[in-house]
């Protein structure tokens, strides 16, 4: 069964029927938002059942759209949290990626600005490495990007997509060794992105991120995970009832090959480790459970089949 990332948007009235339907056909709901009278579901659903969900959702004013980034957690790395970079361009980009289903976290570097003085500390490096992808929002000048990027990418192990003012070709030329993705002509700007050419640029960023993550998914497909992250989310929600008390918009964040659980590690790690998936197999047997550097959260990395010889 191939699960496809989608977004369902529709009225709140009878939306629970859609939720039940997605679960009945074997899909998973990753996020559920209520926006005024509308509900937005980010979900993974079987490819063959998309038309069925669309047909049932139609009378409820609902529509189902492909959302390539559902089930991913992306770090939007901005050089600082000053007015120079926020809310434009960093928030505009982060918000647009979110619309496509990703969970974005903005990582504002403490000393990211400047050409000579830019640096990355160990906490920032570790937090970025907990994501599926890091999107670096750089400035307008080739000279600065060429000089500072080697410092900022030191120790980053996740795929990097670079956004910068110079053209894509110029970025490819000055960045050595190459990074996973490039989007040119998106540097520092101080106005809201609302013109059509600016929206097209945001689309280009989403397309580039999708391309890079698809490569990652293909790599994972060659050595599949022992359990699907979305399934693990369902199991934890069922067996750790305290997760219901977490007020964060996504108490459990689904990543491509893991989960971030927003519960204190010291108290809940043992409980999560002992959760049963099926046939006596516990989460601890198929995944690494470690403390996240983001607050006191729990980070789960699912092991591949080659490590565990188990697929559940």
């Amino acid at each position: 069964m191939i699960l496809v990332p989608v977004t369902y948007k529709g009225g709140i009235y009878r939306h629970d029927e859609i939720v039940d339907l997605i679960e009945d056909v074997g899909g998973y709901i990753i996020q559920k938002h209520f926006v005024a009278q509308e509900v937005v579901l980010q979900a993974l659903v079987p490819r063959d059942d998309i038309e069925l969900i669309r047909a049932i959702g139609k009378p409820l004013m609902g529509d189902i759209l492909p959302a390539s980034l559902v089930g991913t957690e992306i770090a939007v790395v901005t050089m600082s949290l000053e007015i120079h970079h926020l809310p434009h361009a960093s928030c505009d980009v982060a918000e647009y990626i979110r619309r496509n289903g990703a969970k974005t976290n903005m990582v504002g570097l403490a000393r990211g600005f400047g050409k000579r003085i830019a640096q990355l500390n160990d906490e920032e490096r570790d937090v970025i490495n907990e994501h599926d992808l890091a999107l670096f929002m750089l400035g307008n000048f080739e000279t600065c990007i060429e000089k500072k990027l080697p410092v900022l990418r030191r120790g980053i192990e996740v795929p990097i997509v670079v956004c910068g003012g110079p053209s894509k070709e110029a970025l490819q030329k000055i960045i050595d060794p190459p990074v996973s993705g490039y989007v040119g002509n998106v540097g520092r700007f101080m106005h809201r992105t609302k013109e059509s050419d600016e929206i097209e640029k945001l689309e280009e960023i989403v397309a580039e991120i999708t391309r890079v993550l698809d490569i990652r998914r293909e790599e994972i497909a060659k050595d599949p995970l022992s359990v699907s992250p979305a399934r693990l989310m369902d199991i934890i929600t069922e067996q750790v009832p305290d997760i219901e008390g977490v007020t964060s918009p996504t108490p459990i964040t689904v990543q491509i090959a893991g989960l971030r659980i927003k519960l204190p590690y010291d108290v809940y790690a043992g409980l999560v480790r002992e959760c049963k998936i099926e046939n006596g197999i516990t989460i601890g047997a198929v995944a690494d459970i470690r403390p996240s550097r983001m607050r006191d959260y729990i980070l789960i990395t699912i092991k591949p089949f080659s490590d565990t010889n188990i697929v559940v």
Partner: peptide, 15 residues
């Protein structure tokens, strides 16, 4: 850097 200059022209006028 001509392109960088163009971006800064927009930044100056916006600010």
């Amino acid at each position: 850097e001509p392109l960088g200059g163009e971006y800064y022209q927009r930044i100056v006028s916006t600010v």
